[in-house]
Write a protein that binds this DNA or RNA. Structure first.
Lengths: 219, 219
DNA sequence: AACCGCCTCCCCCGCCCGGGGGAGAGGGGC
DNA sequence: GCCCCTCTCCCCCGGGCGGGGGAGGCGGTT
């Protein structure tokens, strides 16, 4: 399994950091290599340790997690994947996090198992975003378990899910438009919404996320 | 499972048609709705029956399977998926078939199970090409079973396979170029080769084929 | 009645991508 | 020696795509 995944924790509450460290260090393939209590500290620790993954709290003194994320991603070649940690799912930070390039985000109430699998997936998928709705895709695929377990945000609408399914069969926007009987502009809108919610850069990444989340099944 | 997959058989040898019919009709979700012994007949039968899938022999009187495929795909809106059937794997027809838009091809010596799964996959993946190299991808993935079982043609080179793997992680051509240390133009060339060999229209379809063939694994 | 989420469609813009060519270098097989 | 394959890189070109806006209608919630 080669080298372990190196993780840095950034949270102003010591208890949270400790909890995360306990959870992550229990996994043989994960190694917490640094902690930070402020955004500024997070930036310097990350530059020093060059981890694979950063768990970044949004609310922190001096510099919030969003700005810290921005600075890390802007100032580093071969920057780590950053997972933004929030308390409330409809946090407006969520979209800011996507915008500045966070690899994903999860809620503090997420189960330990979700946490470690998120870290692994983010580290593994290498230049691929893994945000919010991905888990919702899996949840939707598993027959609408409502808002109980899904500790993630940004659900796709029915139309968006339909469009994503068609994107994942290799259709162009124009073909999707013909198929569902709307204009090409409408499909563009839906695709754009899907990309934003999934944090995907283009339809190719969206398809990959659809497969990886189980939203579409292989053959 | 809704309506069965409607199949038309086009082959000049009656025995071959019968054999195919027996194999396909044994499957509850497949229904052979027409047969043709010549290319011209194939065109008219397909227009009349409007099947989901056509199994098209390459060598037929009057009009060969390639031209028949061309005419069917050109002259019909919502055309069926056409699988071209060949006897020899290095048949030059293979590339012609790809060029005119065949959804895939397979060898007459293919196992019955391969046949039915090919029909299902082609029918399912709806506007998605399923040609040659796809099975080779699966074969490569399954640790180089040489040229024994692979009843399909068009192998990827090592470089092409590497590029496809990177495409399937969501990278752009420029990012792939940086990663493997070559120029962007070179990556373009490799990607173009992959698309041609897989019969994919764009990188999105290539990724889908990579997943469906098992060339890349989910999770 | 006001609000919000969803669906529909429009504009402009820039870029990445894919198609069509070609070309040179190196290696292996005949 | 010659050929063929692979890998490398170049050109031009068109189009699909994604980003950034905005706008109107419709139904459910408050």
């Amino acid at each position: 399994m080669s080298a372990p995944i190196r993780v840095v924790l950034a949270d102003d509450e010591r208890m949270v950091r400790t909890a995360l460290r306990v959870i992550l260090d229990a996994e043989p393939d994960l190694a917490v290599v640094g902690e930070a209590a402020t955004g500024a500290e997070a930036v310097s620790v990350v530059r020093a340790e060059r981890p694979d993954v950063v768990l970044m709290d949004v609310r922190m003194p001096e510099i919030d997690g969003i700005r810290a994320t921005e600075q890390i991603l802007a100032g580093m070649a071969d920057a780590p994947r950053i997972v933004v940690v929030t308390t409330f799912e409809n946090d407006s930070y969520v979209y800011d996090a996507l915008r500045v390039g966070a690899a994903g985000f999860l809620l503090k109430r997420a189960a330990a198992e979700e946490l470690v699998s998120a870290v692994r997936l983010v580290a593994r998928s290498d230049s691929l975003l893994y945000p919010a709705a991905v888990r919702c895709l899996a949840a939707e695929h598993a027959r609408h378990r409502p808002p109980a377990a899904p500790a993630w945000a940004a659900r796709l609408t029915d139309r968006e899910a339909e469009v994503l399914r068609l994107v994942a069969t290799g259709l162009t926007n124009a073909e999707i438009a013909d198929r569902i009987g709307v204009g090409p502009a409408t499909v563009k809108t839906h695709v754009a919404a899907v990309l934003a919610k999934l944090g995907a850069r283009d339809r190719t990444q969206a398809v990959i996320l659809a497969y990886e989340s189980g939203f579409v099944r292989t053959g």
